[in-house]
Amino acid sequence: MKEIGKSTTILAVVTLIASLLLASIYALTKDRIAFLESEKEKNALAVVLPGFTIVETRTKDDSSQYWVAEKKSKNGETIKGYAFISEASGYSGTIRCMIGVDHSLTILGISILQQTETPGLGARSVEIASKYTFWDVITGSAKDEGEQLPWFQKQFQQLSGSDPISIVKKGDWNQNMADELRETNSVSAITGATITTKAIVTCIEKGLNEYSAIINE
C-alpha cells in the first residue's frame, strides 16, 4: 500500500508541475494568439467586403456571427454588404470560409479561413501562385508579389449567389477566361481536387441559403 501512495504522489507532483508550466506559457502567449485571431478576421473581412466599412456585428440564432457593412457608391448611394461564415466538409476535414455579398446576393469576395486539404492539390485553393521560380529567388531577381489573393478565391468575385454556381474544368484561372466564367456563373476547378472545389462551392451555397432571408429583409 505504501508503494502505491508514493507512486501516486510522484505522478501527481509531476503532472502538477507540468500543468503549472503550461499554464504560465499559455498565459504569456494568450494575448498574442487572440491578437492573431482578430487580425485574421479583420484581413478576411477586408478581402470579402473590399472597400466597405463594418458598421455592425450581429448574431444569428444567438450563435453564428455575421457582419453588416456599408460603402458609398460613385453616385452617393449607400450600398450595404454582408459577410458571414459557413462550413462544409472537404476532402479531409472541415472547410470554413467567409463570404461577402451585397444586398442582391452578388458575391463580393470569399476567404477560406480554415482547411486541411491535401498540399499541392486541394490546398492550392489558398495558395497564391508565385510569379517567380525557385531560381529567381536564389538569384535575387524576385521582387514583391503583386497578387494578394489566390486565383481560386478571386474567381468567385461578382458571381451571382442567387443562382447555382457550376464547376467547369478549365485548369488554372486566368484573366482571359474571367468573362466567360462570369457569364455562365461558374468557377474553374483546381486540377486534381474536384472534391475540394465542390466542397467550397457547397460551403458558399449553404451559407447563402442560411443568410439569404436575413439579407433580403
Partner: peptide, 12 residues
C-alpha cells in the same frame, strides 16, 4: 477553459 492541456490529458 484549459483546452491547451489537451495533448497531455489525452495521452495520459
Amino acid at each position: 477553459d484549459i483546452v491547451y492541456l489537451r495533448t497531455i490529458a489525452f495521452i495520459l
